[in-house]
């Protein structure tokens, strides 16, 4: 039985006409030992709701930095980033955390599951942060894990799961609050070919069924080939 989870759009229709996110002239530089390193020089693109976008580029081209900016984990040095109609560059840390928790789901290459917690508990973490009561939280986590084909692994800890299973738990966690955007950083980078295919299929299927946009950073041409659109980063600039 599906469990309702409150989202920023609960009780109101989403503003479908505007793009989900718009990045304009975003730059990001770091200073290391007094030397300035420009990682993002000029990134401009937008992502529509429900759109699957692959970000490709060589190592060091700024893909992960861009993903951190899109995920509100990092602030751009310049330019603007509007997510769901909100100019995030002007937001305080608290609002950014809230927007991130409510609107963005993460899938990491190394899964980043909490080692000593069960699959059920891992999927429940974003729901804890969203203030979802215990029983609803458990029901929602169970529903998502079952949808990922992990109904028999609810109480397994990460070290008891295969890489593919761990990534599916991470995917369930990313979907737990029904986000509008899923950011996936090399989601198949640590998996074998069969698991990679399965994860990508589940990621895309779940995103489409929820009308969630996906921005996936990848080196894998097969993964990029399944996206609606590809954004290429070359020396910190989008093409």
């Amino acid at each position: 039985m599906p469990v309702d989870v409150e989202t920023p759009w609960s009780g109101a229709s989403r503003p479908d006409s505007a793009p989900l996110l718009r990045v304009e002239g975003v730059t990001r530089h770091f200073t290391v030992s007094g030397r300035r390193i420009d990682v993002l020089r000029d990134c401009t693109f937008q992502v529509e709701r429900g759109e699957i976008v692959a970000v490709v580029g060589q190592s060091g081209s700024g893909k992960s930095t861009l993903l951190n900016v899109l995920g509100l984990l990092d602030r751009p040095s310049g330019g603007s980033y509007v997510f769901d109609g909100v100019d995030t560059t002007r937001l305080g840390e608290g609002r950014r955390s809230r927007l991130r928790g409510e609107g963005i789901g993460f899938v990491f290459q190394q899964f980043h599951l909490l080692e000593r917690r069960t699959a059920l508990a891992n999927v429940g973490v974003p729901l804890v942060l969203g203030g979802v009561p215990l029983l609803r939280r458990r029901a929602r986590a169970r529903e998502l894990l079952e949808a990922m084909g992990l109904g028999h692994r609810l109480h397994s800890r990460p070290h008891q799961l295969s890489g593919g299973e761990q990534q599916r738990v991470a995917l369930a966690r990313a979907l737990s609050r029904d986000p509008a955007l899923i950011l996936a950083d090399e989601p198949t980078g640590a998996l074998d070919a069969a698991s990679s295919t399965m994860i990508m299929e589940q990621l895309l299927e779940q995103a489409r069924s929820r009308d969630a946009a996906v921005v996936v950073v990848t080196h894998d041409p097969q993964v990029a080939g399944r996206a609606d659109r590809v954004v290429e980063l070359v020396e910190g600039r989008t093409r």
Binding site: G71, L73, G94, R98, R100, G101, L114
Partner: peptide
């Protein structure tokens, strides 16, 4: 550090 950063990525505020 990784666990705490994961919490932050999942929406935990600094206060949380």
């Amino acid at each position: 550090r990784r666990e705490l950063a994961t919490y932050r990525a999942l929406g935990a505020s600094r206060f949380t």
